[in-house]
Write a protein that binds this DNA or RNA. Sequence first.
DNA 1: AAGTGGTCTAGACCACCCA
DNA 2: GGGTGGTCTAGACCACTTT
Lengths: 254, 254
Amino acid sequence: MSVLPATQISHIRQTLENQIDTGLLQAGSRLPSDRVLCELFGTTRITLKDALLALEADGRIYREKHKGWHVSYPRLDYNPLYKLYFQRMVTLQNRSVETKVLATRELLASATLTREMELPALSKLYQICRLRYLDGRIVSYVEHFLKPARFPGILEQDHTKSLTQTYEEHYGLHFSRSRFSIYPAAAYGEVAQQLNITAGSPILMIKRINYDQHGTLVDCDHEYWRHDAVRIVVDSQDQQTADAPDPVPVPAGM
Amino acid sequence: MSVLPATQISHIRQTLENQIDTGLLQAGSRLPSDRVLCELFGTTRITLKDALLALEADGRIYREKHKGWHVSYPRLDYNPLYKLYFQRMVTLQNRSVETKVLATRELLASATLTREMELPALSKLYQICRLRYLDGRIVSYVEHFLKPARFPGILEQDHTKSLTQTYEEHYGLHFSRSRFSIYPAAAYGEVAQQLNITAGSPILMIKRINYDQHGTLVDCDHEYWRHDAVRIVVDSQDQQTADAPDPVPVPAGM
DNA sequence: AAGTGGTCTAGACCACCCA
DNA sequence: GGGTGGTCTAGACCACTTT
């Protein structure tokens, strides 16, 4: 009764999707090599790749460079309104997180950062680069940019645990406010390398700007997420934000 | 002094990106046809396509089926905490929105919807399908699912203006709370067709469940956004949500 | 009717991973 | 060293849009 797929690509996609949905292919399990799949579906590597790319775009499968295609795991719920400990957000979902520090350095703020953090020209920043593992798998590459004046000596500290916690314990700082900007993008260069994905692969970008208890902008971070690993969850219960004044009726016809 | 790109793909990508950044290619303008670009870069259509797909994943260019590649427009800021009128959110950014109603019908809730809306088995729902245009371009395909008991006769009304407004004016309803779930996905079938994109193209999925002033779940909607057309913006200013109790310190080493 | 993008074939070589 | 995925070539045919 069902309509036959119009193309080989959608046929391959639907077949694999079906095998995943019915549990024949489980989360984390590896698909056969592309040459084997080509044989299986009687097609060429390019056609097969188009089907796999569509499943990747949909977050159903993922790949690590030179290590084949795997079935994706359930997404982590990321709630931007749950401000304090990222680690706690993860453990509440019965999952585990690890953090690896890649580098800490002082640098000159780029043009984009200068704008985003409202800095004067030629400002210096501290940068902390980290890699986050969810249940043992790499899920995000994170860059923190800190205003040096507020965090003397922080580059020498241990950053494998929560940075937010370090802020509180050593600098008496807690966040009163964070501004998030979230959008789909692609990974290149260092980011793609660290996430172990092909340049040009889709990711989810999460940028965050943080203000301390005095309302002062103190740091920001750029999180590059594997796009199949996360879901943004927001609950607007009885909230009214500053930039949402009393609503005015909109003219008809809009 | 700069490192030469390792591959043709990244060379093509960087060249086009540069032309866009410097304004030589402006938002909305069409790239030359793929055969012309192949000639220009001395490569084949498949290699060129890989480069264009990477730029598409990054939201720099977009395509309409059989109509070529175009430079993307600036993203719309979408603030889930700004609850009331979507139309107003758009006009505040000095942009224009239009809505086209595609279909209205009564249907049996799917398994997924039944779970998401906490319905008993075999429930009926009203469905309203709409297409949203931002500055004249299609940006999202939206499906609303309404609990029929709460909205008698609504299928016969005009849905080209704000649905939220209709709720208020005709059914004395306003939202006290909305739960959002946002994640990257791919477009297939009806969605891809209406958005005029190729099946398997990346999109941004925004699911929303709405509660009225009595805290009762009344409707939900599924928004399929062109993934380069939107950015999620959240400001957590002094907010504490119900599912974020007093934070407990996390054991060291997490 | 001409031109465009979408799909598809049948190969090749290389870089990287693992045994 | 064998197998894998990533890159790349040089074509073909079809569906769709535009003129």
